[in-house]
Write a protein that binds this DNA or RNA. Structure first.
Length: 764
DNA sequence: CTTATCACTTAGAATCTGATAT
DNA sequence: ATATCAGATTCTAAGTGATAAG
């Protein structure tokens, strides 16, 4: 816990790896070849990887700028192992990574971090303090929530009103009164009430939670908003096949426009994408069209593409009035369809618009990219609402697929998507009670893990010595999940998705063992594509026992065999469940992320820092977590430019500063000579000016640093999903940093519960 | 067990918007 | 007034994990 891992540094690297680790995939073998060559060329650009580690664990993170570019190594994927195997054989050994495409896809960039290991190997020890934490928070424990919250609430109520400044002028009125159960029938009234209370902000966290597994007692909404119908292309916008204009029937034309809209995207250059698109497009063609259009390469969509560009340009040029009109229409739609009434409160819906048809954009090397995502009709939609609510009505002339009243689930509507056959849902916004309670609960579970993590660590270390292979594998996997914050790694269906892995699904080809590397022993190198095909690349020294176990797991296996052949997420989670109620693999990520933030904030704190410096420290702490969790982003396209702009500003400011200093000096000289009051005043004025400019300069420099360090790291994901907001709120209170510096409006809405209830001494 | 289904969280990219620079 | 840009918002894919079905 707390002490222990200070997570250390990350090493970031990216890189290339030359390993043969990834082999090529295959699936589309046809293309493969070419790809190879390309890849090779790209290789040249390769990437350097820099790695670095920083000895001092503490601060570390910051500096790392991960630069890497990394390559993609080849694709990995293969569908079946067998296939994989075959390929492998053929493929040249070392292929390297290449680069990637810019755009898109390849996503693989990769830093990755490790929590630093405790120094000794006894490792994880507990820090003394942890215990205290537990006391306060309401929900803290396990079964937490329910009961305890309740009580807590009362007291808080009392205090609550104070803070929230702005809005709250009163929240009282109804809300307190309504205990939920009663009312359900009065919906009508509720409706209105809901309105106002929304302004007042309902503090759901001060109410009791249901214990019977039901998610709500009353639910009313208007149903989803469908995608606008297809509007045919004007006649003058032509599609050409083999140089000749050709009019397509509406369905085929619509699909063609989907492709035309993506013409500038790298997707459309990919063979798989083109092949999938063409196949699905043909399904919309008449038989004549089908027989005529046999080669996608002869299709010319450029007029269509230009037309759309012109349209969007026109949209930008619209007059203010028109824009305003649009805005109002949007607002109207939002007001009508963007909210629902759940248990007496008006709540915002997260996604009330049905996904429009288009071409599927899978991430990474997705076998289904380019397939047609079909238009969703009312007949595809299942509506979920209260029996006694006013049911949403389907558009005239249509019917819903089904109307049900299931309060054991939180969704308002659902449909089955045609690419993977999975179900999509319409659910509430993160600021809603239903999402917020769950989020709160997630952090409480992570805090319970904090209390017993030492015990678990001791146990898995012990299990490294087990006679049973399955136990050893489980223990080593858990160590990775704990130390590296890896995802669980469920199995995926081959050929249905990009080839990505998590801990339990790691294959032999994803790790390399180095008994010695530089001055370190027992180094494991990880290189694989994780969620969203983001590359995870990391080299970390592990304990000898872990290393020996890994060697054992690798014996007699092929590169595409599973590293942990006796383990899967279900076995692992079952085990975790026995160790602690509610414990699953993902709880470790939440726990490690939050505890890391808390530690980093403590380490980076500096009471006399200016406000911007404090915010920078916060961002650095946040960054440490993002590195740990491997949250990467493509460097913004405008990154270089924007850095340059900032630098320009800094230079200017610097000039300004020296000018101001010069003036100050002159003023001083003047004063010295004359000693009159007026000159004295001038000195003061100039001194102030210098000071102000210095501050401004400092602020700019801090901003530049922050931005540079953030080049390819995404802070948002961890802030939104992994960091207990109470840690941040407490930190803001402690250092008098306005919460707006840390959370924007949306974030403040999502974390309203934490902002309201957290005191400055909160301990995760 | 193994597989499938379902619900829900987590994720980065795309797009939008509004503030700021020109 | 217009263009630029950065941050906010939207979008929807891709995970996790519980549970049901075979």
């Amino acid at each position: 816990m707390s002490g222990d891992h200070a997570h250390g540094n990350p090493q970031v690297h990216s890189g290339a790896k030359g390993s043969d680790a990834h082999k090529h995939k295959d699936k589309h073998k046809e293309h493969r070849h070419k790809d190879h060559k390309k890849d090779k060329e790209r290789d040249k650009l390769k990437h350097s990887n820099s790695e670095h580690k920083d000895p001092s664990e503490k601060k570390h993170l910051d500096k790392e700028k991960l630069k890497h570019s990394n390559g993609s190594s080849d694709k990995h994927r293969e569908k079946h192992k067998e296939k994989r195997r075959e390929e492998k054989i053929k493929s040249p050994p070392l292929e390297k990574p290449k680069k990637e495409k810019e755009n898109g896809y390849v996503r693989e960039r990769s830093p990755a971090a490790v929590k630093s290991e405790p120094e000794d190997d006894s490792g994880f020890h507990a820090s003394p303090k942890q215990d205290k934490a537990s006391k306060r928070e309401h929900g803290a424990d396990g079964s937490e929530h329910k009961s305890k919250k309740v009580k807590a609430e009362h007291e808080k109520k009392a205090k609550k009103r104070k803070h929230e400044d702005e809005e709250d002028e009163d929240d009282e009125d109804d809300e307190d009164i309504k205990p939920k159960n009663k009312t359900k029938d009065k919906k009508a009234t509720d409706g209105k009430k809901a309105k106002k209370e929304e302004e007042e902000k309902w503090k759901w966290w001060e109410e009791e939670r249901a214990t019977d597994g039901s998610k709500w007692r009353f639910l009313e909404h208007k149903g989803p908003v469908f995608a606008p119908p297809y509007e045919a292309m004007p006649d003058k916008v032509k599609f050409y096949y083999d140089g000749k204009p050709m009019k397509l029937n509406a369905p085929a034309e619509e699909v063609a426009t989907f492709f035309a809209k993506m013409l500038d995207h790298e997707y459309t250059t990919k063979d798989i994408f083109r092949k999938n698109f063409f196949k699905d497009w043909k399904k919309e063609m008449t038989s004549e069209e089908k027989s005529k259009l046999t080669d996608l390469n002869k299709c010319n969509f450029s007029e269509m593409s230009e037309y759309f560009k012109a349209q969007s340009e026109a949209r930008k040029q619209m007059s203010k009035g028109e824009k305003q009109k649009n805005r109002e229409e949007n607002e109207r739609l939002l007001q009508e369809y963007g909210f629902c009434i759940m248990d007496n409160h008006k709540e915002r819906i997260g996604n009330f618009r049905i996904e429009p048809p288009g071409l599927f954009r899978g991430r990474g090397d997705h076998p289904k990219m380019g397939m047609l995502k079909r238009r969703i009709r009312p007949e595809d939609i299942i509506i979920n609402c209260s029996k006694d609510s006013k049911h949403p009505k389907p558009p005239p002339g249509t019917k819903w697929k089904e109307l049900r009243h299931d309060n054991k689930v939180t969704w308002l509507a659902s449909w089955t998507e045609n690419i993977q056959g999975s179900i999509k849902y319409i659910m509430l916004n993160p600021s809603s009670r239903i999402k917020g309670e769950k989020d709160w609960q997630k952090y409480e579970t992570a805090r319970r893990l904090k209390k017993c993590v030492d015990r678990l660590r001791t146990q898995y270390r012990d299990d490294w010595k087990s006679k049973e292979m399955r136990i050893r594998q489980r223990a080593v996997a858990l160590y990775f999940i704990d130390k590296l914050a890896l995802r669980a790694g469920n199995e995926k269906e081959e050929g249905e998705t990009a080839d990505t892995v998590g801990c339990c699904s790691l294959r032999v080809e994803h790790i390399k063992l180095y008994p010695k590397m530089d001055d370190q022993e027992y180094v494991v190198e990880f290189d694989f594509l994780g969620k969203d095909s983001i590359r995870y690349y990391n080299k970390i020294p592990v304990e000898k026992r872990v290393f020996k176990n890994l060697q054992l797991f690798l014996e007699n296996k092929q590169p595409d065999d599973d590293l942990f052949d006796r383990l899967n997420t279900s076995i692992l989670n079952k085990h975790l469940q026995e160790l602690m109620d509610g414990l699953t693999a993902k709880v470790f990520r939440t726990y490690n992320a939050s505890i890391t933030l808390q530690q980093q904030l403590k380490e980076l704190a500096c009471p006399d820092d200016s406000l911007p410096a404090k915010v920078l420290s916060y961002n650095r702490a946040n960054r440490a977590v993002a590195i740990l969790c491997n949250h990467q982003r493509a460097p913004p396209k405008t990154f270089e430019k924007s850095m340059q702009n900032l630098q320009t500003k800094i230079d200017e400011k610097q000039n300004q500063l020296s000018a101001a200093r010069k003036q100050l000096k002159a003023a001083k000289a003047e004063h010295k000579a004359s000693h009159d009051d007026k000159s004295k005043k001038t000195v003061e004025v100039k001194r102030k000016a210098v000071q102000r400019i210095e501050e401004q300069l400092m602020k700019l420099q801090v901003q530049a640093t922050d931005r540079e360090e953030n080049k390819q790291i995404a802070l948002g994901t961890s802030k939104l999903n992994y960091l207990d907001p109470r840690i941040s709120v407490a930190w803001c209170k402690k250092w008098a940093v306005p919460i707006e510096k840390i959370y924007n409006k949306t974030q403040r809405e999502k974390f309203a519960w934490a902002i309201d209830m957290t005191e400055e001494d909160y301990e995760f």
